[in-house]
């Protein structure tokens, strides 16, 4: 009986350690697309005056050539936002644009630089906005993408 208890305790301990290890490894996640996006975002995040604050939450997924995806997101008037899209595959060409609650394009500024793209918006109203991301070209499929954003 004692032996069984000891075995059970050991099994629980091992399971706990394994679970902790899985969580640790999961947390150490590296997403190349996100890294590319952050690299592009750095100048805005490191402005000496009024830098953008990067949110910890981000979006990710996969798309094929010619596909697009819409992300809904609540924005607040008087704030200014930058959204950066990065693809893990260097050869991919991606784009990102933003639309207001009525579906009209609302980009204040946008750029496309191979596997990274960005869009800035100064919302006219608080409310849901639509971020459209697309993979315009790629050789390797599917394209892993990540979107990060900052506000000020």
């Amino acid at each position: 009986m004692r032996f069984t208890k000891a075995n059970n305790t050991a099994a629980i301990a091992v399971s706990t350690l394994l679970a902790a290890a899985v969580i640790f490894l999961a947390r150490a996640e590296v997403h190349d697309g996100k890294s590319f996006a952050i690299e592009k975002a750095l100048p805005a995040l490191e402005l000496k005056e009024n830098p953008y604050t990067l949110r910890e939450n981000w979006w990710k997924g996969e798309l094929r050539k010619g596909e697009n995806k819409i992300l809904k997101h609540q924005l607040f008037v008087r704030n200014e936002y930058w959204f950066w899209l990065g693809a893990s595959q260097r050869g991919a060409k991606v784009s990102i644009h933003i639309y207001d609650g009525e579906g009209k394009i609302a980009d204040a500024e946008a750029f496309q630089d191979k596997n990274v793209a960005g869009v800035r918006i100064i919302p006219k109203k608080s409310g849901v906005h639509y971020i459209r991301i697309a993979v315009d070209d790629t050789i390797i499929e599917p394209v892993e993408w990540a979107v990060i954003y900052g506000y000020r």
Binding site: I70, K72, S95, G101, I105, A110, R132, D136
Partner: peptide, 13 residues
């Protein structure tokens, strides 16, 4: 010019 559609149908999302 950027290739972005000027509007989207939000009802279809």
């Amino acid at each position: 010019k950027s290739g972005a559609p000027p509007s989207i149908d939000v009802g279809a999302i």
